[in-house]
């Protein structure tokens, strides 16, 4: 593999922390301004899956209906992260400190050779500008916004994920911004990355995340007067039962599932 996934060793499988190859973290390599709170080092619980076969209510005496599996996203990592991740994290945090925004980065997750910075939504635009313009960072290309809806993570249901590519340094990072359902506003990065114009419109269309500062936030994929935001988890898939000769098959979202 190329050196984009900087945190990989020859075995190719890198989990979250791997202090064995990088020694004891010291002050020089620790990234100041990227706080690693104790709770971030635990896995981030974003919900749970209940029941085994999608069975709800009475009728299932097997016990599978009572199974509960917590869904936990990979935990935050402590510096050093390995490879060029530290360089980027250091440049980012020192750049933010210069601009007087040390608390912009909430958490850093290194998982499967990819680094994700969780950014506070009020600071997104400045972080993006810093990432694009700073010489050692130079993430010129933003590959769009991807929305994710975690209904189980109260207070941070809607996530917007930005993938950034630095062509100068041949690197990729990911930014993740969370906002609550009650107040789904995130700063728009269109002033910094004009390519996100349609991507943000699409994320608004499908998730209801309002991007403040977007030139024209309107529906792009669904018809203009469509109610609701289809890719949210509380929006039904909308299938209809299908008639075959001698049977009717229910739509996919009501069929038996394996949780």
């Amino acid at each position: 593999m190329s050196d984009v996934s900087g945190g990989r060793d020859t075995a190719g499988r890198r989990g979250t922390n791997d202090l064995s190859t990088s020694g004891i973290p010291d002050e020089a390599t620790a990234a100041p301004g990227v706080p690693t709170r104790k709770e971030d080092l635990q896995h981030q619980v974003v919900g749970s899956r209940e029941g085994m076969f999608g069975v709800r209510g009475s009728g299932d005496t097997s016990g599978y209906g009572g199974l509960v599996a917590t869904v936990a996203m990979p935990s935050g990592s402590e510096p050093p992260y390995g490879g060029w991740f530290d360089e980027v994290a250091r440049a980012l945090s020192s750049g933010l400190a210069e601009r007087g925004l040390p608390e912009a980065v909430e958490k850093v997750v290194v998982h499967r050779g990819e680094i994700t910075f969780f950014i506070r939504r009020e600071r997104l635009l400045e972080v993006a500008r810093l990432l694009r313009d700073e010489e050692s960072l130079r993430f010129e290309l933003c590959l769009g916004v991807s929305g994710v809806h975690y209904p189980g993570e109260t207070g941070r249901e809607l996530h917007a994920v930005y993938h950034l590519l630095s062509m100068t340094h041949n690197r990729r990072i990911r930014l993740e911004v969370a906002c609550p359902d009650a107040d789904p506003h995130i700063q728009s990065v269109v002033p910094v990355y004009p390519t996100n114009d349609w991507h943000e419109r699409e994320t608004w269309d499908f998730f209801g995340i309002v991007f403040d500062g977007h030139p024209s936030l309107t529906r792009i994929e669904m018809p203009d007067d469509w109610p609701g935001h289809p890719q949210r988890k509380d929006y039904p898939l909308g299938g209809i039962p299908v008639e075959y000769k001698g049977a009717t098959i229910p739509p996919p979202e009501t069929r038996r599932t394996y949780n």
Binding site: P230, L237, I240, V242
Partner: peptide, 13 residues
């Protein structure tokens, strides 16, 4: 003919 594999909100069945 029938909506095909896309039995969802977006496609006319």
């Amino acid at each position: 003919s029938s909506g095909g594999m896309f039995n969802n909100y977006a496609i006319v069945q």
